[in-house]
Design a protein around this nucleic acid. Structure first.
Lengths: 213, 213
DNA sequence: GGATGTTTTATACTTTTGTTTGAAACTAAT
DNA sequence: ATTAGTTTCAAACAAAAGTATAAAACATCC
């Protein structure tokens, strides 16, 4: 076999396909995009998807895993960074987690589309859900729950996961209903939205720290 | 034209189709269900969809509107009922709104599937979004926001819509990730979930009523 | 009971889909 | 320059989809 200096060319087509997959699948879902549309967007031949990835679904899966891992890793880095600072606070942590994706969505970057991708995957279940669940829980949910407990000591441990999930719900909502937000709240700013989410979730969490019940 | 006593038979096929559409479209989405699968589930001929509804998409739209209106109306009735009681409280109102769909989802009734249908529609946008947005806002969001302000007088009016949306996010989350909830929290009960949601949202709302900022 | 309008059925049609194929183009080493 | 391996391409393929159609079956009224 001849060793080729193919790092540039061949990976270029692969990555162009992955990029096109990211943009299109996030917007329209796996079934909403045809291989022809995909390869046209990537500027390559129809057969390239099968040649490089062995099929449409494999391309989708690889793209999803890449995006999903990046999202998780980004969150973990954020949490570690904030928690290592000298003056941690619940609001700081929440804002640090919420801000990047919301700003990304506002600028129509892919970062904001990943959450829609995740929701779509939850609905359609094209990938083995076990994989998604495992990483989501073990890597992200447990880590952030632990951080919450560090900052708010009174938080009952058996409610942590539920709290994190509701936090997730608050984050997810504007990504799903962004058009709705903009139509319904004309003078909505990104900063205003972020501040609201931080405040609402912080209050929700602290509601558990109060001594009653 | 001959007047037929067809209330029973012909409407039967139509309703069987609407029922099948409800069950299948909620679970797999418009593109995830073929007309053949649909008519097989309804126990009628392939051509019945075109005969009665003029196409697959029309059937989907009619089903969606029916479900959506029922959901909205159910919420409005709930709010009116609770708000007319003598001893209103934020927790009571929240629980009254949250409880029916959550219990429905737990029993695998269609009621729990409607929210998934709504999210899917938000992602795929098969129906004119204007229709969905308009009813959602004018009928439901404004009404519930108004109720919040009645109960919690200190709530700043310009934040009401955001608060309602985050409430919506907390509600939506377990419907999307129900499998995830059950796998991650083995000893989760429906009552425990409902209590958590009520408590979290109530605290989030009251976070705005506190005098600071 | 024949006529008429309605519903059901089986079948055919057209388009679109994902995938395959085999030849051509290309790259790099001998 | 030839050769061997890799990538690209246009074309073809089979399967699945939504829709259309025309005949059969059915029901209702005169």
């Amino acid at each position: 076999m001849v060793e080729k200096n193919r790092e540039f060319e061949s990976e270029d087509v692969q990555n162009r396909l992955l990029d096109a997959a990211e943009a299109l699948f996030c917007k329209k879902g796996l079934d909403g995009v045809s291989v022809r549309e995909l390869t046209a967007a990537a500027g390559c031949n129809l057969a390239a998807v099968n040649y490089y990835f062995g099929g449409k679904e494999n391309l989708y899966t690889e793209m999803f895993r890449r995006q999903f891992q990046m999202m998780i890793q980004g969150h973990l880095n954020t949490i570690d960074r904030v928690m290592s600072e000298s003056d941690v606070s619940l609001e700081k942590l929440l804002k640090a987690i919420i801000e990047p994706p919301v700003r990304g969505a506002a600028n129509n970057e892919t970062k904001g589309q990943v959450l829609k991708l995740l929701v779509r995957e939850v609905l359609d279940q094209k990938i083995d859900p076990e994989y998604v669940v495992k990483d989501m829980k073990e890597k992200f949910f447990d880590r952030i729950g632990h951080a919450f407990m560090e900052i708010v000591p009174d938080l009952p441990e058996d409610k942590i996961t539920l709290v994190v999930m509701s936090f997730d719900g608050v984050i997810l909502h504007p990504f799903l209903f962004m058009d709705f937000y903009q139509k319904t709240i004309p003078d909505l700013t990104i900063d205003g939205l972020i501040d609201h989410m931080v405040r609402f979730v912080a209050a929700g969490i602290r509601g558990y720290a109060s001594p009653d019940q």
